[in-house]
Design a protein around this nucleic acid. Structure first.
Lengths: 262, 262
DNA sequence: CTTACCCACTCGTCTATACGAGTAAGCGTG
DNA sequence: CACGCTTACTCGTATAGACGAGTGGGTAAG
């Protein structure tokens, strides 16, 4: 029996104040919430809904666009509209920069992904000196030029995070930090070796809709926000030694922090 | 001179692969990014853009809907489409539960808003005993029923945050915590007085698009995600004594954390 | 001068139609 | 069997038109 003849979706109330396309979206949303359509499952096609509700195609498309904006469904050209599966999330703990996680040869990202049984990947590596933006300059304490390390992280082929580290030139230039591969333990290990004992980090978190650029880079579906995290690392004298600007696909992350109740 | 005759917006390339409505959205976005349209300023009306580009109205509306999804603009029925102003953000520091912030008579929210010169407000107060959801029960260590304290926070009349605190009944029942107004210092101060010395907090952060309910409660514009924060408070024995579930308008908040580099 | 109405302009909703392009399965040919 | 074509179904883009409803300014009536 088709999902439409089985009473899965009801009728519209033409006398209601609520617009037709909203009523349709409401019914589809409820059906999804109740699990009548499962993750990854195909919704009825536009044509089927046009027949079922007796409305025009634009009205049906309008209701789909609402659900897309809510991140509930995604359309695939030539195939159909599907309930968006919730991808496995990466859990970032606040102790992820603790010493014990830095002793190993591989980066935290690789180690953690291997443990979770997924296939990690890092690409778009770029390391270069450039002019510091106003914001980065302020955060690093009025430096004009910086070393920028850009990279993109993927899990099982899906881009989940795009990060750029900025370091003052007087710290990073001519050191392994300026190499594409900074070696075991990453740049934090190198900073310590260079005598910059890391004292604490400061993280700033925002959430917003992605720019078109970010949609491309992270291959984001409609209705997926990004988490924008800016971390500053300070040495023992309180000097900022690195700023890391990270944009994450919000549906792939949960951040977790432990706070003392001082 | 009208914004349209002044070369602010260009022409369309009909031979391009890029859809017309995307090209229009691109041009408007760029104009906004470059500050050609300022915050709160009105964009050209649908009719004006129809004339300028020589496309149908649906095409123009389609491009507006893209920009709305990106949170760049918002439409006002009968008035026009406007560049969405960035509201002042509330900065939540990770030491906001430190002792020194709890000594005063007023809640942290009120104190902080007063200091920032804005008008704070708390409403939708509800305090009641209820059945714990699966998730809350797990977080509190398998309790069946809880005391739930719901409230909504507003700044200058705008709802910015909706929070619910859950506490085990054996801790909260019959104490000031079960009163609508728990008294100076809030429920954390009361917990301490009751002998539950707070040891540390754990915060989990997600970002996602709001549910229709949340859109209503927080009066969210299109294209504004929410930050979902779940905080668990632990006492000295490692027992969870409170879970606070908070949904924040993402455009109104920056979260900030200090992490030791242990 | 003030009030009430009208009207022009705005976005919101909906219909009907057309063509393009991606997908997948079936079918026929080599 | 393997390959390529056709075909039917999917969503994507775009047009043209209609009516409704909220807003605000101007105008005519009191």
């Amino acid at each position: 029996m088709s999902p439409l003849s089985s009473g899965l979706l009801g009728d519209l109330d033409p006398t209601s104040d609520r617009a037709l396309f909203r009523q349709i979206a409401d019914q589809l949303r409820e059906a999804i919430d109740r699990g009548r359509f499962r993750e990854g499952e195909k919704l009825p096609s536009e044509a089927e809904l046009v027949d079922h509700y007796g409305v025009s195609r634009m009205t049906v498309r309008n209701s789909f666009s609402i659900l897309q904006g809510e991140g509930l469904v995604h359309a695939e050209h030539g195939k159909g509209v599907f309930v968006r599966p919730r991808p496995p999330v990466r859990r970032l703990a606040s102790d992820r920069f603790a010493w014990r996680h830095r002793e190993q040869g591989k980066s935290a990202f690789i180690v953690e992904a291997d443990a979770a049984g997924s296939h990690p990947q890092v690409d778009s590596l770029e390391v270069k000196e450039e002019k510091a933006s106003q914001d980065i300059s302020t955060r690093l304490g009025s430096v004009r030029r910086v070393l920028a390390r850009r990279r993109r992280y993927l899990l099982d082929g899906r881009p989940v995070e795009f990060a750029t580290s900025y370091l003052p030139l007087d710290i990073a230039r001519g050191t392994p930090i300026a190499e594409p591969n900074p070696g075991p333990g990453g740049i934090y290990a190198r900073l310590e070796e260079l005598g910059h004992r890391l004292d604490h980090f400061e993280e700033e978190i925002r959430a917003r809709m992605p720019s078109p650029d970010e949609v491309r880079t992270l291959r984001l579906a409609a209705g997926v926000p990004v988490i924008h995290l800016i971390r500053t690392a300070f040495d023992g004298e309180g000097r900022p030694v690195e700023v890391c600007d990270t944009v994450m696909a919000a549906d792939a992350y949960v951040l977790s922090y432990q706070l003392p109740a001082t």
